[in-house]
Nucleic acid binder design. Structure first.
Length: 558
RNA sequence: GUCCCGUUGGUCAAGUGGCCUAAGACUCCACCCUCUCACGGUGGCAACGGGGGUUCGACUCCCCCACGGGAUACCA
């Protein structure tokens, strides 16, 4: 077989000098140790937590080392294309603070290593495939999908490994004339790798390949022996081939991808060997898992698990900084302890290590996320939180937007309730929860929600409120204010201090806490809340007094 | 079927042959602080999947099994 002739037949218009791309895309001029990473989503536009998870690792690794992080759209499967997907991907990631230095963007490609859409790189792939053909490393295959299906069935019947290899790779033996004739007849074909892997050998007897995975350590697998497709009938490469060519030419140093790729590693190794290129550092991450209804751990799935979608966190009003913080905890096991030691440091100060990534799948724990949210939100200035909640409301709860819009200062004061000092309150978790938490500050959403304390009758309650109103001075300081409540407690037979009541419960109806709960009920409609005095200061004198009068009246009616 | 990866409390996890009577965080419980709640503090419950080896000694190394996950496409 004259491979040069075959290559010319297959790729008449393609360059014979793929090495020219080596000069078009020279090694990057980067500082020693800089990592080049990439995210390669398919253009469905659906970007999920797993993508964010690995994008985060990519981003940290690149930016921490002074390297480059780029976006490459892996649109080799035309069936998957969704309009506007690139914008969606970029926007989703940007919301969580992930930005690319290079690659596909809303305004088109940026950077010297493009094009960054695989669909636009056909001539590059073809140049390398042509060279493989010339070297006898690849060949056209004319088998129809029916033929391949029949082969698979026979292999299954004989308990053989499915796939095109060895004797099944019938098109390997086609003569030039046969090929030429089929092509002239317009028969569709793909280009397959002519694998050097041993066939008819037990896997354990096969040559083993050894790859150092940055997360998992040394990986040992039998070499590839499949004649995998490198170029589809459409002339577009498969993932395997595109990965090898692109990551070489784009000078990717670290390939971070999900563990589902582990099994195709031998294919990639053979391809890299055939091309004569150095392997990138592979980092195969574990999948995010969840516990499903029957209590078993399983991979988060697109279809079943709404929490996999990034939009889930956005629409549920989780602050991106909190999601980042939590993800970083899952990403690097030592982050949490570092955070405890450095509560105020920026995330970028944390030394992310790829080796510290877990190699078993982590369960995504919403309870923990909520806890992380509290710690993260407590550090965000109130004004910023107001903007955050406002933007969330605008998109997801427009009916409550008027509460925030134009009242930013009022809301900011509410959010700052008890947040100062060295033991700040940590009440705030997510946008909807924040609204729920502060709702009673707005008359439209104020209502009596809880029950009166057991130790206070309606009659006593009304009397307490009357006495409270009598002595109420809006300008009183907190201490003076509370002293007055103690006096009222005393008047009505409630202990001035809870401890007194605990010691001699028979002497009292209750204690000062019961009295203040009545007031709290009147002012907030709830039996639990932050400091009443501060709440009253924010509500203002008029609104406070009105609420007390109203509750007093309702108790009298009862 | 074959191949690969994984398995430490309910969850995230530290652990690289003796420092393990197995760290820390979340959850839960108790107590303290306290006008309620939250915060904070103190304490508590709770784990090396099973079986064989190797070794003076194994969570750590090897083998088998079980379980979970993945691959086995002209999807990525």
């Amino acid at each position: 077989m004259d491979y040069d002739k075959l290559a010319e037949l297959l790729f008449p218009d393609t360059t014979d000098d793929p090495d020219r791309y080596e000069t078009i895309y020279p090694p990057r001029q980067l500082p020693e140790g800089a990592c080049v990473t990439r995210l390669g989503p398919s253009p469905t536009g659906f970007i999920h937590l797993g993508n964010l998870f690995s994008a985060f690792a990519d981003e940290r690794l690149a930016h921490q080392t002074g390297g480059t992080f780029f976006l490459r759209i892996e649109d080799t499967d035309d069936k998957r294309y969704v309009e506007g997907a690139v914008e969606t991907v970029i926007r989703s990631l940007d919301y969580f603070g992930i930005q690319f230095d290079e690659g596909a963007s809303a305004e088109g490609d940026r950077g010297d290593y493009g094009p960054y859409h695989q669909s636009e790189r056909a001539e590059i792939y073809h140049a390398y495939v042509k060279r493989m053909v010339r070297r006898g490393q690849a060949y056209p295959c004319f088998m129809s999908s029916e033929e391949i299906e029949a082969i698979r069935q026979e292999q299954e019947k004989n308990q053989e490994n499915p796939g095109i290899y060895g004797k099944w790779a019938k098109s390997r033996d086609l003569s030039f004339e046969e090929i030429e004739q089929k092509i002239q007849a317009g028969e569709p074909y793909v280009i397959r790798l002519k694998s050097d892997g041993a066939v008819d050998t037990e896997p354990s007897e096969m040559r083993q390949i050894h790859v150092q995975d940055a997360i998992r350590g040394e990986i040992t697998m039998p070499e590839n022996n499949m004649d995998v497709v490198v170029l589809k009938a459409t002339g577009i490469p498969t993932y395997h081939f595109a990965h090898v060519v692109d990551d070489h030419l784009m000078r990717t140093t670290h390939v971070i991808r999900g563990e589902e790729w582990l099994s195709s590693l031998p294919i990639h190794v053979e391809l890299f060997e055939k091309m004569g290129w150095e392997l990138p550092v592979y980092c195969h991450t574990a999948h995010l898992m969840k516990i499903d209804e029957n209590g078993t751990k399983r991979k988060l799935s697109k279809r079943k698990d709404p929490e996999l979608s990034l939009d889930y966190y956005r629409s549920d009003g989780y602050h991106p900084a909190a999601v980042r913080e939590y993800l970083l905890m899952l990403l690097n096991s030592n982050f949490e302890e570092w955070r405890i030691a450095n509560p105020d440091a920026g995330e970028e100060e944390f030394a992310f290590q790829i080796e510290k990534m877990s190699n078993s799948g982590a369960l995504f724990d919403m309870t923990k996320l909520n806890d992380v949210c509290k710690d993260v939100l407590v550090k965000i200035p109130a004004a910023e939180l107001v903007e955050f909640v406002k933007n969330w409301a605008r998109e997801f709860r427009p009916e409550i937007l008027p509460l925030f819009e134009g009242h930013e200062d009022y809301v900011a004061k509410i959010l700052d309730l008890g947040r100062s000092g060295n033991k700040p309150r940590k009440d705030l978790i997510s946008a909807p929860q924040i609204f729920e938490f502060i709702r009673y500050f707005f008359d439209d959403y104020f209502e009596i929600e809880d029950e009166m304390p057991e130790r206070v009758t309606a009659e006593d309650g009304a009397a307490i409120l009357a006495a409270y109103l009598e002595t109420y001075e809006h300008s009183d300081g907190q201490d003076v204010w509370f002293e007055k409540i103690r006096v009222i407690a005393d008047q009505f037979g409630y202990a001035r201090k809870p401890k007194d009541f605990k010691k001699h419960p028979e002497d009292y109806k209750g204690h000062v806490g019961d009295v203040s709960t009545v007031i709290r009920m009147a002012v907030t409609g709830r039996s639990q809340s932050p400091d009443i005095w501060e709440i009253q200061q924010i509500l203002g004198e008029e609104r406070t007094k009105n609420r007390i009068r109203e509750f007093e009246a309702s108790l009298q009616r009862a």
